[in-house]
């Protein structure tokens, strides 16, 4: 098992808006094996993105555990120290968010090479692999040396995907990875996800595109609105 979510609770309390409480997840449990791709489904507001962000350690859980297999040991992402969460992200997890958080002045190729350099790959080899990754995603070569701030949504998304996939992490978290891509690039991303599961990666994803979902997912995990259940 690569990911084991047990009894996960998530509620937002909005102190600046009179302490309104918004329940998002209640008693959610989910296991994902190596080589398996699970698609999260359910209406918008059912907490799909929140679940992915909780597994990544981006959101803080109010209860439950999020066990991730990291370098042969079990780490609870809901309780681990910040530096442990960062180590798990660096070595074990790739996350594709819906938006690219742009770093000023850093060219696309260096953004993609950075996660490899953080793993100790030497600078030239990392850039080489980053270029190959961007090429496979059909990002025009003239963009590689530019900072992505001015890229289109689809171009930024491909930089994001390249960042997450370039180091072939054992766990992949994908939040709408194909949302702003055309059919040809969608097909590229589908084949990259299938290659990832084939080499043993555990994948949790949100895929609104039904065809993409059918092509990559081994099973669906249907989420219900916690606020209705509560």
């Amino acid at each position: 098992m690569m990911i084991a979510v047990e009894g996960l609770e998530k509620t937002f309390t909005l102190h600046v808006q009179g302490g309104v409480r918004i329940p998002v997840l209640s008693g959610v449990s989910l296991s994902v094996a190596a080589g398996e791709c699970v698609a999260l489904t359910g209406p918008s507001g059912s907490g799909k993105s929140s679940l992915i962000k909780l597994i990544y350690g981006n959101y803080k859980a109010q209860g439950g555990r999020i066990i991730v297999r990291h370098q042969g040991r079990a780490v609870d992402m809901a309780a681990a120290l910040p530096r442990t969460v960062l180590e798990v992200r660096r070595q074990t997890m790739g996350y594709v968010s819906q938006f690219l958080r742009v770093v000023p002045r850093v060219p696309a190729v260096d953004i993609v090479a950075e996660p490899l350099i953080a793993l100790g790959v030497d600078r030239d080899a990392a850039r080489h692999r980053a270029r190959a990754m961007l090429a496979s995603l059909n990002l025009p070569e003239r963009l590689w040396s530019l900072a992505p701030a001015t890229f289109s949504g689809g171009e930024q998304q491909r930089v994001n995907i390249a960042c997450a996939l370039v180091r072939e992490p054992p766990v992949l978290l994908l939040d709408e990875p194909t949302a702003s891509l055309d059919a040809a690039n969608r097909a590229v991303v589908v084949s990259l996800i299938r290659a990832a599961t084939a080499r043993g990666a555990a994948v949790v994803g949100i895929f609104h595109d039904r065809d993409v979902r059918a092509d990559v997912a081994d099973r669906e995990f249907r989420m219900t609105e916690a606020r209705r259940a509560a």
């Binding site: 040991r73 079990a74 780490v75 609870d76 309780a79 120290l81």
Partner: peptide, 9 residues
């Protein structure tokens, strides 16, 4: 104090 979970200390 998490049982069996290595927090890397």
């Amino acid at each position: 104090g998490i049982d069996g979970v290595d927090t890397g200390l």
